[in-house]
């Protein structure tokens, strides 16, 4: 073996002079094109984030303080106040009573329907599309429609319950408990298709031969579900759950449209809105915003870890 054969090519054709500017490197060019977007992003996302962090340590009130420059620095007072006020904790619990049942329901229904759809049948594509429609409706519009339907006097829901079935009418949006139930129903109606879609994608990706192998190995249907379907679909389902959890946690428009944050449905984002734009306590509102952010980051982190764990199990 001689070393001659691996001598690298040393000559390259010289670049044509032409229009090429010597000082304009590829990196600089790329940077130039990216700059406007980056600046805009910085201005509308990063800057408010940092500014509100600053404001959360002040007693700034957007209504009465002439300028934010004069806002009084109060240290962690806003945070202490938020974390020690019982009312805030009630809001957290109210949010939880919304988020936990909603995401659970959406998961069970979405995954359940996907399991039913995980086979060939006539009209499968069409029905799948129909099922996805609620997801495509703007939440605000969906909320308005449901508000009409939930109307105690003239809504179609009470018409069915009272006039058709003969039960007592339900005060859907005004009673504490039923208001929360209405909220859960509407959100579940709108977002179950999302879990359904993700589940269906996961189920379709499970190779058919694994089921065939299990068939030959005399595995029961439950055994196949437990040992093949679930472990393979689980990571994807977790991603769906994260999405829904974060989304439900910051739910605002639906609660606002349905009850205007009335009794029983004053979830955290609604509460935050009322502090920020009802009391104009900007400093405190910013502090609550940051508390919420920390909670959701922690939650998401736990779930992402769970995903990574189940991914690692494959390797």
């Amino acid at each position: 073996m001689t070393t001659q054969s691996i001598t690298p090519e040393t000559t390259r054709p010289a670049a044509k002079p032409g229009l090429r500017l010597r000082w304009l490197s590829d990196r600089l060019l790329a940077g130039t094109f990216l700059a406007p977007t980056l600046l805009l992003l910085l201005f509308i996302t990063i800057f408010p984030l940092i500014w509100s962090l600053y404001l959360s340590f002040t007693s700034y009130n957007v209504n009465s303080d002439p300028s934010w420059l004069e806002a009084k620095w109060v240290g962690v007072d806003n945070y202490v106040y938020m974390l020690t006020t019982p009312r805030v904790w009630e809001r957290f619990i109210e949010s939880a009573t919304f988020v936990v049942p909603t995401v659970t329901l959406e998961f069970l229904l979405g995954f359940g329907i996907a399991l039913l759809f995980n086979r060939e049948f006539k009209g499968r594509g069409l029905i799948t599309t129909v099922i996805l429609i609620p997801m495509m409706v703007a939440p605000l519009v969906a909320g308005l429609f449901w508000r009409f339907m939930f109307q105690a006097d003239i809504g179609i829901v009470n018409y069915l319950i009272h006039d058709v079935l003969g039960f007592q009418p339900v005060f859907w949006l005004t009673d504490r408990t039923s208001a929360m139930i209405s909220l859960i129903i509407v959100d579940t109606w709108q977002w179950t298709p999302f879990i359904f879609l993700i589940s269906l994608a996961g189920l379709t990706a499970v190779p058919k031969y694994l089921y065939e192998a299990a068939d030959v190995d005399r595995a029961s249907t439950w055994f196949k579900f437990r040992h093949i379907t679930l472990p393979l679909v689980w990571p994807l389902l977790l991603i769906g759950i994260i999405f829904r959890l974060m989304d439900a946690y910051k739910l605002f428009e639906l609660a606002w449209v349905l009850t205007s944050g009335g009794p029983g449905t004053r979830v955290l984002p609604v509460h935050l809105y009322k502090i920020a734009f009802g009391d104009f306590a900007t400093g405190r509102a910013s502090a609550l915003g940051y508390i919420m952010l920390v909670v959701i980051i922690a939650l998401a982190n736990l779930l992402v870890r769970a995903i990574n764990r189940s991914r690692a199990a494959e390797v």
Binding site: P207, Y209, L210, E212, A213, D215, V216, D217, R218, A219, H227, I228, P231, L232, A313, E314
Partner: peptide, 21 residues
């Protein structure tokens, strides 16, 4: 007779091992 009740063993070309086990 279903595949399970036929009581045969099948070795697949791609092995069809259960990936998480």
């Amino acid at each position: 007779v279903s595949p399970a009740e036929r009581d045969v063993a099948f070795v697949f070309q791609n092995y069809a091992l259960y990936p998480r086990k």
